[in-house]
Each structure stands twice: as structure tokens, then as C-alpha cells.
Amino acid sequence: MAKVVVVTSGKGGVGKTTSTAALGAALAQFGQNVVVVDFDVGLRNLDLVMGAERRVVYDLINVTQGIAKLPQALIRDKRLERLALLPASQTRDKDALTEDGVARVINSLKQMFDWVICDSPAGIERGATLAMRFADTAIVVTNPEVSSVRDSDRIIGILDAKTVKAERGERVDKHLLISRYDPARAARGEMLSIDDVLDILSTPLLGIIPESEEVLRASNLGSPVTFNNPSSAPARAYLDAARRLMGEEVEMTIPTEKQGFLGKLFGRRAA
């Protein structure tokens, strides 16, 4: 049975799109059939992070309006055929996305894939509520920083109220993905620790993604970090998180960069 996952956060810039791309790619690397769906109407970016921006023909709204059939709008990843992207529209008309339309598309996608991963826009407006509307599972991306934690708390409340599952009296399975974490700064008391964040949000942890230059490198190239450098610290963190999503028991660690001989010699970081 296909699982519908929403990647959400409330706050912008915390790593929703990066995480959607990386987790989607990671699940596909484990043999799953995955589609990542961009819900950020008017400001799509998942296509760019996935490296498919030059191949967009049709989008989510074209499909909901019947202008294009779903298989025509899906862009198959060139590196891994089992991974597909459904891009958002660049239209400025946000009302073009309707609940019925989204319901139909999600239901069709569930027949075709094992995982339907919805990349939510920032905020709590229509795009964000529609992205989470049909979710079985929610991944709340949080930075260890006050405004992000506060917005995550808001979003957790909305997940418990405004999703189809919540309205049926069921529960959306919620997970926290802490990104841009710097263990050294947390140890020095300069950054909220993992325990602080978990304590405040009391939501189970899916993974800890360390702050890393690999993330920018991957998005420059249009390649999810788990494809671009699978042995890097953030990639290993995302791969572990994907295994937890699949129900595996994986010990929670904060992967660190295995510095090569040259890296050690010149110590590229002194944060």
C-alpha cells in the first residue's frame, strides 16, 4: 500500500525541498518506487534541486485541470528510473489548485508508486494545507533555532486538525527531521540541542542532518545529496532516515564528515 508523506515546516528555508529530494532519492536507492510532488505553486524549486528544470513540460495544475494526463506530466529521473517528479506550476493563480483535483492526483499516484512525497510550500496557506491534506505521514523539518521550532509547533497542531486523517479521528504519523545541526555549537551551548528540540516538540525523531557544505554542492549540480555524494555526512543521515521511514530500526547517530588526508591536513572548517 502506497504511503503519502508530506514534508513540511511552516518556516521557509529550513530544508524542505532539499529533504524531499534527498529522502525521495534515498528511498528509490533502496529499490522503492517514489514520486516527489512539488506543491509550491508559483515558486517551484524541487525541479531545480532534482536537476529536471529543463525537462518540465506539464505540471500538477495541468493534471488537475485535465490538460495533461498524469504519466505525461511525470518526469522520470535520468539517474534512477524508479524516481519521478511531478512539478508545481509557475502560475500566479494559487486558487488553481483545488482539493478535489489534488485528491484525484494523489489517488492516481498511489496506484503507481510505493511512496508519494509532497513537498510543502512554507507558510500555512492553501498550498501548505493541501500538501498535507491527504498525508499518512508527516515529516516536520526543523532547524535548531527558535523561530523554526515555534513554527514547527504550529504546523504539528495543524497536522492534528486539518488533515483528512485527523478529521476521521485518526492520527497522521508525525516525525521530526532536524536539519542544519552543528554538534560542536550545540555542545558549546550556542545552539539548541537535539534533546531541547525533542523536549519542546515531543515528536519522534526521524533523523539529524548535520550542517554541511555538501548540501549546497548537490543543489548547485541539481543532484539530491544522496546521489551526489552518498558517503557524505548529510547523505548518510538522509539514507538512515529513509530506512527508518521504511520501518527499519536504525541507531540514531549524527554522521560526521570522514575527512580525507588532505582535509585533515588543511582543516577546511574552523567554526
Binding site: L48, E53, R54, Q90, L216, N220, L221, G222, L262
Partner: peptide, 27 residues
């Protein structure tokens, strides 16, 4: 890549130039 660590920014710039040339035109 090992000897050319700064390699990704030019790729990002090229990708954006192609994309934005098209998007500016269409908007």
C-alpha cells in the same frame, strides 16, 4: 573532482542562466 573542489558553482550559474532566460521570457 578531488583536485578541483570549487567545481560546482559554475554549473549552478549555467543552469540558472538557461532556466531564467526562458522563465523571464515567458513571464
Amino acid at each position: 573532482n578531488l583536485f578541483r573542489r570549487q567545481g560546482t558553482a559554475p554549473v549552478a550559474r549555467d543552469r540558472l542562466q538557461i532556466l531564467l532566460a526562458y522563465e523571464r521570457g515567458s513571464t
